[in-house]
Design a protein around this nucleic acid. Sequence first.
DNA 1: TCTGGGGTCCTAGGACCC
DNA 2: TCTGGGGTCCTAGGACCC
Length: 427
Amino acid sequence: MFALADCNNFYASCERVFNPALRNRPVVVLSNNDGCVIARSQEAKQLGIRMGVPAFQIEKLLTDHQVAIFSSNYALYGDLSVRVMNTLASFAPSIEVYSIDEAFLDVSGIREEELEPLARRIRQTVLKNTGIPVGIGIAPTKTLAKLANRMAKKTREAVFILRKEEDIRKVLSETSVSDIWGIGNQHARFLNQHGMVSALDLTAAPDEWIRKNMTVVGLRTKKELEGTPCISLEEMVPDKKAICTSRSFGVPQKELQQLEEAVATFTVRCAEKLRQQHSAATKIMVFIHTNAFRADQPQYARNRVITLSPPTNNSIALVKAAVAGLRAIFRKGYLYKKAGVIVTDFVPETEIQQEIFAVQASPRMKKLMESVDKLNRENKTTVKIATQGSGRDWKLRQERLSPGYSTRWGEIMAEGNCEIRAYSYSI
DNA sequence: TCTGGGGTCCTAGGACCC
DNA sequence: TCTGGGGTCCTAGGACCC
């Protein structure tokens, strides 16, 4: 049996933990650049605010209902996530942290009548320890646990056990295919076209047909819905196979120099992530593009892949390559909205094929990077590469950022700087 | 005016090998 | 006119997730 614990309206709940004045008030959290709504409190959902809607399109609604609006504060959400996961981990022999706000727990071997009390206990403890409300679904497969979790939300019970065959049948018949974990937009439409509307309809289709039309991935989903586990608990977080750092700019950029500073900064971030997992990259791609939403402006989008020889995780070498790539694709006369860097084709850093005359992989360079990482642990801007520049002309728009309550000494909640603010939307 | 960021897996088809 | 059989590796594109 698997339990799926899912934080309710996670980012919105995080904002509330340190700001009780927000209770019972509609709260939304915006994506980077204060662009789209990416989290909504229950009250905000009831106002009809849809997931992913651009904030500017619902400006009036937000003002009229005094919705509290926040820029995303990933330092805060990441920190609270760790606390939630630590609490969850104390309840099960193994746990898979599936995303920032979700975890699967192994609850096999627990007597049927014990499942619900356990779930309630988990929920109470997480709430007490962190202030974050979670919903819990329990079922024989991960896909069914996802459905159970959905039912927990739907019924407002916060806990839902899906075990008996007749219960499973009933839930499947009431769930549309688009609400199944693993069935996205394309497949949902495809299934509908073939007359399959509910999850139960999907389970009635022949295996071979599913396999032919939806690959083995679709077949696994079907089996999981039938109660046969095909997706196991992944406790170990595997190393990444690709690492990407990209941002949209608060203000469109037209000069090469600003783009170079941004690309250098993204590259350094990728290099840090590479070193964290002890990988070195063989390829680096840099991309830039204009704002595709602006049909009235000239459009331009290019990327360039550069092969790194030898493979490296050295910030200096990577920045050199990325900037060279950028210079090759940059064209004057466009308003660039976004840039990014992706590193791929990793090898373990201990297995880099050395080349004659290679400076980058020298032991001194490795030590230098280690020292830089150490110095930057507290503050990311302690040591920078000159190409990153000193300004951040390309920075994000973040006009409604909440304090780093739990991650920055200067912003911690304490007498003297305990200023509880209620934000309302006005431009 | 204003529209996010970061990943994974699978398959088909082409290039290439003997 | 006729034109083999069997394999691997790589990549692009499409699907999905949060």
